[in-house]
Amino acid sequence: MQRQGLRTWLFLAPAGAWFLCMLVLPLIVVFVFAFGERGAAGGYVPAFTFENFANLGARWTAFQNTMILAPVGTLACLLIAYPLAYFLALRASVRWRTLLLILVIVPFWTSILIRSYAWIYLLGGQGIPSLVKAMGLGSIRLINTPFSVLVGIVYGYLPLMVFPIYVALERLDKRLLEASSDLGSPPWRSFLQVTLPLSMPGVATGCMLVFILLMGEFLIPALLGGGKVFFIGNALVDLFLQSRNWPFGAAVAVALVLVMLVTVAAYLRFTRRWAGGRDDVSLM
C-alpha cells in the first residue's frame, strides 16, 4: 500500500511541481501585488491597501468592452462552428473529413500576427470596402471597428470551437439518430431532440475555451481595432508594460481571474446538468 502511495506521488510530482511553479506561485505574487503601491518610477512597493481594487472602476470601460465582445464573439464562433463541425462529423465522407479537419487547423501553423495583417488588408480601404464601392454599393468602413475585431476573433478562435463540437458529434452514437427516426421523428426534430442535446458538452467546452481566452485577448483588438477597441487584456498590457503600475495591473488581473472562475463554475454546473448529475462530463 505504502509503495503504491509513493508511486502515485512520483507520478504526480512533475505535474504538481509545474502547477505550483507556473500557476500557484505567480497567482500568489499577483494577489500580493494587488494590495501594494506603485513605486515612484513604477513597479511595486510593498503595502497593504485596497486602493487598487477601489480604482477598478477606472478600467470599467475595458471590462465592459470585453464583457460585450467576449460573449458576442463566442456566440458568433458557435454559430459558425456548429454547422461546420456538424458537416465534418456527420456529413463529410471519411476521406474528405481528414482533409477538411487539416484545413481547419492549417491557419494555426502561421502566426496570428501575420494572419491578422492579412485581415487588416482585407478589411482595409483597399480590400472589401473597395469591392463594395466598385459594385456601387456605397462606401463602408470595416477596419478598426468593433466589427473588424469580431471578424478577427471569429477567425482566430473558430478552430477552438470547432474541435470540441466535432468530437462530441463524432462520438455521437449514430444509432440514436436511427432510433429517433424509427420512433417517428423527422430529421430536423431528431437534430433538436438528440443531436443538439448530446453535443452540448462539446458546445459548452468550446464556448468556455473561447470565452475564457477572449477575456484575456489583447492582440486582435490592438491589430484589427486600430487601438480603438480596448479590451481588459489591452489594459493589462498597458498597465504592466507602459505605465508600469504593477499593483493596479495585479488588481485588474485578480478581478479578471475572478470573472473567469465564475465562468468556469457556471460551465461546470451547466455540463453537470447536461450530464445528468454524473461527475464525469462525457455522456457515452
Binding site: 478600467r59 470601460t61 475595458a62 507602459q242 503600475n245
Partner: peptide, 9 residues
C-alpha cells in the same frame, strides 16, 4: 498613464 488608458478605452 491613466489619461492614455481612458483615451484608449
Amino acid at each position: 498613464a491613466e489619461i492614455m488608458a481612458r483615451f484608449k478605452a
